[in-house]
Design a protein around this nucleic acid. Structure first.
Lengths: 139, 139
DNA sequence: ACCCTTATTTAGAATGATTATAATACGCGA
DNA sequence: TCGCGTATTATAATCATTCTAAATAAGGGT
């Protein structure tokens, strides 16, 4: 499997320590993270790492389609280490994000935007309450 | 048609000037707005209006399902005066939001969340570039 | 392997949307 | 009309993210 360094080189992105640590983290921990999450979890192995670099490189990776910025939360940005097509469920109570598989839908049911837009990608978000929180609320 | 005041009363929401002006605005201008947008457009007719009240009441109306908070933009909240089911297209260049009709899809194609979640609502967002911006970029 | 150029990182400050606070004003039921 | 409780106001606080300027490091060319 492609290493973080190989991936950066293949995309002609300059290989720096920040980028390698960040990308390794994302490749090893497929999931949904804020910049702060990642920052905290990388500090042990790279104490000089700067939060601004995390932000810069998350944005950079997003522009390259390596990860995806999720617009799920009001107060902070969340990045999805898995840029593949899938939907999300967000719990209004605990805030957790769950991945959902997209069903295969025949083309005739596709939403049509009448040639007015060039769509680069699509987000589907369900909101509500997850099982765990629902149980807690019924105590 | 129901007036703003009638609507507030029917929902047992205390009728205040801020709320009436805000709700009137939203009923008269079905569209997508930031708190700041609305604030500026209401200042002529209500100079004492406070931005914090706009925020409070947008959140209140959202909780009552009268409007819908959109998670379309990174940097600021956008509210949709139309809480009915529809999708959105967001232009990455100009930031404009366009409404899209949702197609009717047979139930067998619905996304299944295996009973783990109680879904309250769904958001579908397409991103890309709109016709106008596309033309500008090709000059 | 060593410069040199340029992009990146760093630390800290700045920004800006949103929320919190505390005092005042207002809605509305009695 | 009175009085209670909630909403509004003005202002300050918060906090995620971006900006700035100086220091550092990557990597192409020699």
């Amino acid at each position: 499997m492609e290493t973080a360094i190989e991936k950066l080189k293949s995309l002609k992105i300059k290989v720096t320590r920040s980028r390698v640590e960040l990308l390794k983290f994302l490749m090893d921990n497929k999931g949904h993270f804020t910049a702060e999450d990642i920052f905290k979890r990388l500090q042990d192995q790279y104490p000089n790492l700067n939060l601004a670099s995390i932000y810069n490189n998350l944005n950079l990776f997003d522009e390259h389609g390596m990860i995806r910025r999720l617009y799920t939360h009001r107060e902070k940005a969340v990045w999805d280490a898995d840029a593949g097509a899938h939907a999300h469920f967000v719990c209004d109570v605990c805030g957790k994000i769950f991945d959902l598989e997209l069903p295969q839908i025949p083309e005739k049911y596709y939403l049509k935007y009448s040639g007015s837009f060039k769509v680069s990608h699509e987000e589907i978000i369900f909101r509500g309450i997850c099982n765990k929180c629902e149980k807690k609320e019924n105590i």
